[in-house]
Write a protein that binds this DNA or RNA. Sequence first.
DNA 1: CTGAAAGCGCTTACAG
DNA 2: CTGAAAGCGCTTACAG
Lengths: 353, 353
Amino acid sequence: MYIYANVCYSFMKKSRTTLKDLAKELNLSASTISRALGNHPGISETTTKLVQQKAEELGFIPNSIASSFRKKKTRSIGIIVPRIDIYFHSLVISGIEDFAYKEGYNVTIFQSKDLLKREQEITKILQNKMVEGVIVCLSIETDKYDHFKKFKRLGIPLVFYDRVPTGLDVNSIVINDFESAFTATEHLITKGCKRIAHIAGNQSTAIFKSRFEGYKAALKKYKLNFDANLVGQTHNLSYEEGIIQASRFLKQTDLPDGIFCANDYTAVSALQVFMKAGVKIPDETAIVGFSNYPISRVIEPHITTINDRAYEMGAEAAKLSIRLIEDEEESIKSETISLKTELIVRESSLKNC
Amino acid sequence: MYIYANVCYSFMKKSRTTLKDLAKELNLSASTISRALGNHPGISETTTKLVQQKAEELGFIPNSIASSFRKKKTRSIGIIVPRIDIYFHSLVISGIEDFAYKEGYNVTIFQSKDLLKREQEITKILQNKMVEGVIVCLSIETDKYDHFKKFKRLGIPLVFYDRVPTGLDVNSIVINDFESAFTATEHLITKGCKRIAHIAGNQSTAIFKSRFEGYKAALKKYKLNFDANLVGQTHNLSYEEGIIQASRFLKQTDLPDGIFCANDYTAVSALQVFMKAGVKIPDETAIVGFSNYPISRVIEPHITTINDRAYEMGAEAAKLSIRLIEDEEESIKSETISLKTELIVRESSLKNC
DNA sequence: CTGAAAGCGCTTACAG
DNA sequence: CTGAAAGCGCTTACAG
């Protein structure tokens, strides 16, 4: 009789050691091995040690797919982001990964590329038991949410961040864009600005609409006139669009003495356009951005901006997601966590100082 | 006799439809269902259609964990990066995800946080069958590679990018840092620079050493003196370190008329320090960076730099990884793919134009 | 073209 | 404290 088990031809992948191999080796049952490796209290310390030593010796690595399959738990979270290479999202993902890692979860990542169709495809992929929870920032195109409904039926908790569905009862992590924009604008006002312009993001996206509203609310509170000529609408707050809008402001007979921009890229545009025209920043025109992008603390003068807590947003999303995964009773009501932002004051708004 | 199967209490997660449920429903065997869903040629078209329709109707979603387990294929790739929120890595990851997605693979991501210990932990996690291939950029601390050896034995192909093990025979995707640095320096020389400084990265990291060597080689070729005073060593090429080194250059009696910086952050520092001191960029001092960070095309004057092909690097890493996964015969020899970089000429080096 | 049966490598309820 | 047995939901070699 020939023994074929564990024969290893040099041209073959070595077959892995399994629980059974260990059991045979130690004359114990697979049950005992499994329990010993999991530090189950009902196994004697001697046996546990013995098993763990042998496991180490044979280089045993548990097959986590088998385990996931058996336990119906993958300890895996799926993320859908528009793009990974947008700094904001890379920070969020970093926060998610960090928190998940600490909790023993891993993170599988997908990019919707801001395409509804790809987002829909991805949700299909994620419904096949691969992940226990899903964290999403909606694509810019997304205007219907049917593709997310199935997760609820499957008991896979969904957490949205930043761009979240409107009018739907969902778990979400957001910042208060209205309040943040209000604070930013108010800051310009307290620095003495009376004619404040705004470079606005896409008004069909809730967060940019809120920023615009916050700007208007601050003007109102301080009884400053709202001038539609001082609002520059953009599609996606790109640097190039910022240049266009800032140049438009520059043509006004009465220049703005403050500009609140809905992101830092357009704040950079405004800064450069105005400086090139010989306008003194901040003394003649003060500028505030939004998001605390790295560039805001590098460009000169450094730009006052809003820290939008991207990393924390990710960590909170992971935290909530894992809580929902591990909560025995499915919680009925949805949660919205709103993170406090922070105004970071830098040179671009430091008048009279 | 009571039938309990598929009873769904409102407070329970609905149990999923399985292959067996479908089989029962259609009076077919599980084998046939499985094959029909997989469009196996040996199943009649009528049956295939019937099964697929019913699957759709009952909202059947195959359990991919069961399938992975059975087939011993997860169609999953693991990535270990120092940090996700570094623009370069976010671009690489984006390239990996894009290519993997097209090929039906998904991507699980881990951050080493530039800690050897965490990198080692992660490799342990990744050895448990979760992924079929692993793509790595080493942590800055990594000076031994034992924790990667096991992958080879397990038949899990490893692909390194950017920061790759030295002196080891591994699959890797890199750019030619020497050549790129040579080209960048040569560009300054052809623009008339005779006294060229260099802000260098950590010389214990191979890529930064190569950039330094490339710089020296270009000087040599054009018979320019190498002046150690014109080399600013940094630990991690931070903006702040760039400020320090550029300020040091500024104190030289004979100012450099060109600066080649090993990344774009320090190029920004040099630009700002020199401009603030009243030095005209590029006419008095021309500046070239490295990496084509977004800031390089926003700061004024825009910075000449090297496109380091981060996205393509990711795509190539994924491509190689998947090829190695799917190749039946384990290939013996390792591959190193070197991507062509590109000099992007912008205002910061456009003398005499 | 279809089905019965075995089995992937674990975990766990049950029994002792 | 330990073991025998069943089973998670698929896939596939074998048989017809």
